[in-house]
Design a protein around this nucleic acid. Structure first.
Length: 196
DNA sequence: ATGACGATGCACT
DNA sequence: GTGCATCGTCATG
């Protein structure tokens, strides 16, 4: 066991994260632990979005849906995907309209709860994709705009292995921008990273 | 009022 | 690998 990190240092690291340009923040977040209501795990896959990026929800400017992306950093932006799934981002960056999509977690907390919510038992399938992450954590639009550093959320730094980088998934615009990040070799990724 | 689209996941081949 | 469910959001009339 490692000595627990102080409350003050957590706040310091969070503040740094919240104010880092999203592609760098997305890489920094790998290995951090995210839970909601005591349920969650280690972040192993993220994607960065930025207002200058045609693939970003913030690209067209503020609307009712993306409003929280343009507010203060450190809050959760939740949107509905394909009419079915919820996906969550952490708003963070050097300027408004930047966020990091949480794509996959390695389950560490509340495995039983997640298995029931997801309807699957395999730990590798609990949070392997942004829609599944939200289903496992119980996150919906009801959490849109909530701070990630306050209940029911907990976000704490943690160690990570080598970081893999690649193109983002499921987008057609700016599909070549390498703003997908993950823990290399993790068994909990939504998809493997393309080899170099 | 209406239509096109999508930062997905799952069933199926 | 392909097909598709399903609906909020936004652009248009």
């Amino acid at each position: 066991m490692v000595a627990p990190i102080s409350r003050r240092e957590v706040a310091q690291r969070q503040d740094e994260l919240f104010h880092t340009h999203s592609p760098k923040a997305a890489a920094m977040m790998i290995g951090w632990t995210l839970t909601c209501g005591g349920v969650g795990g280690r972040i192993v896959e993220t994607e960065a979005y930025d207002p200058s990026d045609p693939a970003s929800h913030s690209f067209p400017g503020p609307t009712a849906r993306n409003a929280v992306m343009f507010g203060p950093p450190g809050v959760i932006y939740v949107y509905r995907s394909y009419g079915i799934h919820w996906c969550m981002n952490l708003v963070c960056g050097e300027h408004p309209g930047s966020a990091v999509l949480i794509r996959a977690l390695e389950p560490t907390h509340g495995l039983d709860v997640m298995a029931e919510r997801r309807g699957v038992a395999d730990p590798r399938r609990l949070m392997n994709g942004p829609g599944n992450v939200c289903q496992a954590l119980g996150v919906t639009v009801a959490q849109n705009g909530m701070r990630v550093d306050e209940a029911p959320f907990v976000l704490e730094p943690g160690p990570a292995g080598a970081i893999a980088v690649g193109p983002r998934i499921g987008i057609t615009k700016a599909a070549d921008v390498p703003w997908r990040f993950g823990e290399a070799g993790s068994r909990f990724l939504s998809k493997p990273f393309p080899k170099l």
